[in-house]
Design a protein around this nucleic acid. Structure first.
Lengths: 189, 189
DNA sequence: GTCTATACATCGATAGAC
DNA sequence: GTCTATCGATGTATAGAC
C-alpha cells in the first residue's frame, strides 16, 4: 500500500488540504496541519508544491475556470434558466470547492491580492446584471440576487456534509425554486 | 479629539476588528493588523481585551443571541412568513455580522471548538426542519433550503458593500422571493 | 491607558543528507 | 521523495515602566 509516486502523494495533499481549508479556513490551516494528516514531514510537502498558495491554486484551478465560463455566458444572451442552471451545476460540480471556499475571506483576500484577474466579485456582478436586465428596477435586482442565492447557496446547503452529488430531480427542484424567486409570480420576465 | 476613555477605545477596536475579520477572515487577521489601524501598540489592545477570541465573542455576542431566538421561533409554531422574515431581519440587523462571519470557516472552527453551545449548524437545521414540515419529502426540504438561502444569502448580497440598512420595500421584495422559493407554484403548503 | 521590550510558539519555507 | 534540522518572520500574549 506504499504508493510512493509523486502523482499519488500530490493528489492526497490536495484532498487533505481541501478538507482542512474547508473546515478551518485557508488562513487557519497550516502546512503542519496538512502534513500531520499526510503522515510526512513539512519538507516532503514542499517537494510537491512550492508554496501554500500553490496548493490553493491547484484546488481552485478548475473551479475558477468554470466560474469564468459562466460569467462569459452571462455576457452573451443566455436565458435566466440557462444561467441559473449553470450556476447550480457549477456549485454541484467542479465548483463545489469554489462555492465553499468563496465564502472564506482569507481565500478571497489571497486571490484578490494578486494582480491576477481572479476577480470573484466582478464575475458575480456580471451574472446579476444579466439576470436583472438592462436598467433594472430595485425589485428586479433583488429578485436576481435572490435567484442567485438559491442557485449557489441553496445548492451548497443541500450538498453540505454529504458525499454523493446532486441528483437530477434535486437539480430540477433547485432550478425551479431559483426561477420562482427570479420571476414575479406571474412570470414577469 | 483625543477621547482616551476605555469605552471609546473598546468600541473602536470592535469596529476595526469587525472590518478586518470580514475582509481578511478571523484567522487571517492579526492583532498587529488591528492595532495598526487603531494607532496604538499591541499591548494597549490587551488592556481592553484579554485575547483575540474575546474580541470575536464581543462582536458576535448580539448576533448569536438573535440567531438563537430565531431557532426558538422555529421550534414553536411560527409560519413560514414569520420565520423567513425574521431571518431577513436577522441578517439586516444585529446579525449582519453573523451572516458574514458565519461564512468564515475559521470563525466556525473557533466557535465549535469550544464546548460552548454555539452550535451554528444545529440552529440552522432546526429552521430547515420547521420550514420543511414533518416527515418532509426531498423536494420540500430543498424548497426550505432555497427559501433560507434567499432570506440569508440574498439579503447579505443586497447589503454587501453599502452603508445603509434594508429599506422596507427591499425587505418585502426579499421576503416575497423567499416565499416563492418555498412554496410550490400553486402554494403547495 | 498606553508604551517599549520581549517571551515563546508557530508560521511558511529552505538546506542538505539519505 | 522523504528526512532532520533550522532559518527568519510573524503569531499571541505578557512584564513592567510611565
Amino acid at each position: 500500500m506504499t504508493d510512493r509516486n509523486a502523482a499519488n502523494t500530490r493528489s492526497r495533499i490536495l484532498e487533505i488540504a481541501g478538507e482542512l481549508f474547508r473546515t478551518k479556513g485557508y488562513a487557519g490551516t497550516s502546512i503542519a496541519d496538512i502534513t500531520g494528516r499526510l503522515g510526512t514531514s513539512k519538507a516532503a510537502l514542499y517537494y510537491h508544491f512550492p508554496s501554500k498558495e500553490h496548493i490553493l491554486d491547484a484546488i481552485l484551478g478548475d473551479s475558477l475556470a468554470a466560474h469564468a465560463r459562466i460569467a462569459e455566458l452571462a455576457d452573451g444572451n443566455a436565458t435566466a434558466e440557462e444561467l441559473l442552471g449553470a450556476l447550480v451545476d457549477l456549485v454541484a460540480g467542479a465548483g463545489t470547492v469554489l462555492a465553499v471556499f468563496g465564502n472564506d475571506p482569507s481565500v478571497v483576500a489571497a486571490l484578490s491580492q494578486r494582480e491576477s484577474d481572479y476577480r470573484l466579485r466582478d464575475k458575480d456582478s456580471r451574472i446579476v446584471a444579466a439576470l436583472a436586465g438592462p436598467r433594472p428596477t430595485t425589485a428586479a435586482r433583488i429578485r436576481a440576487q435572490a435567484a442567485i442565492a438559491v442557485a449557489k447557496d441553496g445548492t451548497r446547503m443541500i450538498l453540505a456534509g454529504r458525499d454523493r452529488g446532486l441528483r437530477k430531480a434535486e437539480r430540477a427542484e433547485l432550478l425551479a425554486a431559483a426561477l420562482r424567486a427570479h420571476h414575479g409570480q406571474g412570470g414577469t420576465r
